[in-house]
Design a protein around this nucleic acid. Structure first.
Length: 482
RNA sequence: UCCUCCUUAGCUCAGUUGGUUAGAGCAUCUGACUGUUAAUCAGAGGGUCGUCUGUUCAAGUCAGACAGGGGGAGCCA
């Protein structure tokens, strides 16, 4: 058996002095021809390997370069140096893989995130991305644990869909038809009956509609999978391929929905604070360093861990859309005409408005409910007793400081006639959506759900400002390396 | 897609009003040192100044187009 090694995280957290160990990892630095800082990704902390002078061949020592992989047999000893409590005194050094020092792009120094983005295949070996992706893993694990503890069924909704009624964004087409000379029908349009599925298909933009079908049997389900949007979005918070978590709960209304979403976000944060303390401490310091470079007015004013604690300790502010508009209209910001976009009832809130509410006014996450029906999707439940012309739906968005919309959800329209009327008004073909409408025909119940953008959650918890730095291989317009 | 800024050594960046042979730190290589902590010290190599076109006696520097990237907006999660 090759692998009898001890992971560095475990080694550093209490392997007794005097133990013989096997350690493997990649060289971060090699100092003084004697001291190797070795890292295996289990933690940002390195184990110091000591190669005593004269004990090893010069030829072997020459091959210990940044990025090379080593297998070390040695003994755990108390360190004579100051930087670490223990170190491994090497008896055997095996070079598993060489790393040409002239070509290896990562140096023991600070690199820009932009540079590392172009070296996405190697950036996992840096402290920042080590921490980010360990935090991402913990968040993913916590997602499953949270729902599992509450009896939710993990439902895998399809990646390829024929439904194009969702309206969540531009879609990527899935086809096996040739680009040149695709078969045409009598109308001169591409004949999708000859395509692989016998119809036009796309990559999913949301698993929600299928998720609702599951909720109508299991009571509570969640999805957690990749989602695709072919929007030409070039921002720090959009990806063409991203991961989304979409719980859907029967016998739940909009308030239950908000309660669950808030509990969920807090659970995720709490989990990471408990299991990734070292990584958060590192990311906290990294963010503080980054913010030092910013002009004062762009700084968040508090640290990463401080922010996460504040979210855990304080409830999310809950306001209606109408209240949000009033707050904006009464703000000095508005009176001094500092908003680029005008504020009045009926508009979709612009990011500057959301940011004002979250970052200036409340200074904590805000849940906005009761949006105008005209600006929201067909499946959201019409609120009863609205003033004519001011119809609202039971929608809710959770806005987070620095990220903006992190959750979008709603109570769904369970009344068949109301839903059909809305779909007709919005030109959504009822016959194609018959399978969806069946949920309202056969034992319809009040139900609700939401979508949480996983990468935005990772951004929020890690403090990374660009979404491309919290997914392993980012897909954005004009960028599909690896 | 729109607005805006940027592109000089492997990386991070200087480069004055257009003017001789384009610099620094880190990295790399060579040597020294040997309990170092992004080791230190000495020396060396390393550049089609994003690409193309133009203005000019002369362009890293000025202008235009294109490409790539950052930030912001819209769309949203």
């Amino acid at each position: 058996m090759f692998n009898q090694r001890v992971k560095i995280k475990q080694l550093l957290s209490g392997t007794p002095v005097g133990t013989d160990v096997v350690v493997m990892g990649w060289v971060r630095t090699f100092r003084n021809n004697q001291f190797v800082a070795l890292n295996d990704g289990s933690t940002n902390a390195n184990i110091q390997i000591v190669a005593e002078l004269g004990k090893f061949d010069e030829a072997i020592l020459k091959r210990i370069t940044t990025g090379a992989s080593l297998k070390i047999k040695g003994t755990v000893v108390e360190s004579l140096g100051k930087g670490q409590a223990v170190e491994v005194k090497a008896n055997e050094i095996e070079i598993l893989g060489d790393s040409d020092a002239e070509k290896y792009p990562l140096q023991p120094k600070k690199h820009s995130l932009e540079f590392l983005r172009e070296k996405a295949h190697l950036r996992f070996r840096t402290n920042t991305f080590g921490s980010v992706f360990r935090v991402r893993h913990s968040l993913a694990f916590a997602v499953h644990q949270f729902f599992n503890e509450r009896g939710f069924i993990y439902l895998n909704t399809p990646i390829i869909t024929s439904s194009d009624a969702e309206g969540a964004g531009e879609m990527f087409r899935v086809t096996t038809l040739p680009l040149e000379g695709a078969p045409k029908n009598d109308k001169g349009e591409i004949d999708y009956t000859q395509d692989f599925f016998g119809k036009s298909t796309n990559l999913t933009v949301s698993g929600q509609l299928e998720g609702e079908l599951g909720a109508m049997a299991f009571s509570e389900i969640y999805t957690f999978g990749p989602t695709f949007r072919a929007e030409n979005s070039n921002t720090t918070r959009h990806l063409a391929e991203f991961w989304m978590i979409e719980p859907e709960m029967a016998f739940n209304d909009i308030e239950d929905n908000m309660n669950l979403a808030e509990a969920f976000i807090k659970y995720l944060i709490e989990y990471v604070m408990k299991h990734n303390e070292d990584d958060l401490v590192f990311l906290d310091a990294r963010l503080a360093e980054e913010e030092k470079q910013l002009p004062t007015e762009k700084r968040s004013g508090f640290g990463l861990i401080e922010k996460l604690k504040m979210v855990l300790e304080n409830g999310f502010e809950r306001i209606t859309y109408t209240e949000a508009i009033d707050i904006l209209l009464n703000s000095n910001h508005y009176k001094k005409k500092k908003f680029t976009y005008d504020v009045k009832w009926g508009i979709d809130l612009q990011s500057e408005h959301e940011r004002y509410l979250v970052e200036q006014h409340f200074k904590k996450p805000v849940i906005v409910t009761g949006y105008p029906a005209a600006i929201k999707a067909f499946y959201m439940r019409m609120n009863d007793g609205c003033e004519p012309g001011k119809e609202t739906v039971a929608a809710m968005d959770i806005l987070a400081p620095g990220i903006g919309e992190i959750v979008g959800g709603s109570q769904r329209e369970e009344r068949l006639s109301v839903l059909e009327a809305r779909m007709t008004a919005m030109d959504i073909p009822l016959d194609e959506m018959s399978w969806y409408l069946d949920t309202r025909r056969f034992g319809s119940v009040p139900h609700a759900g939401f979508g949480l953008g996983f990468e935005r959650m990772v951004q929020f918890v890690s403090g990374m400002t660009n979404i491309r730095d919290v997914i392993a291989f980012a897909r954005t317009p004009n960028n599909c390396e690896y």
